[in-house]
Design a protein around this nucleic acid. Sequence first.
RNA 1: GGCCCGUUCGUCUAUCGGUUAGGACACCAGGUUUUCAACCUGGGAAGAGGGGUUCGACUCCCCUACGGGCUGCCA
Length: 474
Amino acid sequence: MTSSDRDGARRPVVTRFAPSPTGYLHIGGARTALFNWLYARGQGGTFLLRIEDTDRERSTPEATAAILRGLDWLGLDWDGEAVSQFERRDRHAEVAREMLARGAAYKCFSTQDEIEAFREAARAEGRSTLFQSPWRDADPATHPDAPYVIRMKAPRDGETVVEDAVQGTVTFRNDQLDDMVCLRSDGTPTYMLAVVVDDHDMGVTHVIRGDDHLNNAARQTMVYHAMGWTVPVWAHIPLIHGPDGKKLSKRHGAVGLEEYQAMGYPAAGMRNYLARLGWSHGDDEFFTSAQAMDWFDLDGIGRAPARLDFKKLENLCGQHIAVTDDAALLHEIEAYLAAAARPPLTAAQRTGLTSAMYCLKDRAKTFPELLEKAEFVLANRPIVPDEAAARALDPVSRGILAELTPHMQSASWSKDALEAAVAAVAQARGIGLGKIAGPLRAALAGRTVTPSVFDMMLVLGRDETLARLSDAAG
RNA sequence: GGCCCGUUCGUCUAUCGGUUAGGACACCAGGUUUUCAACCUGGGAAGAGGGGUUCGACUCCCCUACGGGCUGCCA
């Protein structure tokens, strides 16, 4: 059996990504979104987006916007409108009341101070610090006229089993689970209640999320049971760690997805890398999104946390840049420029870059690297050599360039002819091709790292090439 | 503290009781080469430790160590 029909009944798959808008889109969150998207799309299902903004203190519209931008960049499209969890608060409260009516929940009048006192005492005595409310079985007649929260009346005996598509069967003793708060004293729902209600109402069939929620799944299962709702297929995926194996944090460098865009990684490479991080399909390493959709399955998800490896990311990005068509590449490079707050391309640069793309795309791993190698076509005369290029333009080299120029003037402008011309000069001088290519590269690009000198001449054309040669030789 | 999860080359991983434990990235050496990238050849590199179960364990069970998570009127 596959994980998709673990619960027996085949339902159209519905997944969701449910981030809380309290900051940027975390790289780990992005992968969670990717897995949900891949699974839904691969199964011909639906992928929903829900913003978990019930924490009014920390939620911001800016963070929501950042999340949407991140998903958009990664190419993860969701179905329908993004749902605001906060706006569904009345529905959540309604379910809390329903649980009350069913005897699956109760009003708890304990104050924060009382709860804290309880925990301190428990800690001191070495008992469980799970709060045991005195109101759990209180007679409603004794209820004071005071603020209260609605707590889940969790079973005290027995155990709750979470059937997880990734983690396997995980059993929790019910006495380890507390009577979680479902509705706060101000009448707003807690996350624990809201997720369940929303996932149920939205018809979510597969909950794929970080394994920091594995414990929560047990308590949420109780809500499903209390309401008589079908429990979704759980899939708790391991978190992503930093290169040192510790929980990913800012000291590891980039943790926000947008930073990766600003660093110039192509979205396709990012998707490929993220998909491969914690999920595998045999020995396949390099693949398109279409293949990933086709192959993606919950069974292929690993159980151990994975570490970020920038070298591998770069390698995959390089491969994707090489196979992306020129127009799409240009488009993405312009988006990168904007994301990195770099000046946009001029019309002339856009044209030049397009004509040079064929000799740039398979020698760059990131957009900044590609742009650096494209400098020869991006820059205008006079070409200002960088330090290394300036060193390559010593008097002897300039003499060589001066000698080469007439040959270039008469050569037909094809790669073969250009190579022949350069070879002829090399032979006449009794030097290797490298002795000519170095200065030539410096004169044409002002750089020492570029595409082939012949490709550059082809892209630049005769007039521009000769002009640059004369600039450098002169 | 309690509960839960995890642990195969440096990294990502394959393996789903029987393999010389495979691949990729990275690294090292050599080759090719006009730079970079790419490419070719070769190399080093792994089952956390200890007990079981079994004819046979990386694979199953237990313990320990280490890492992570939860234990909130945060999500």
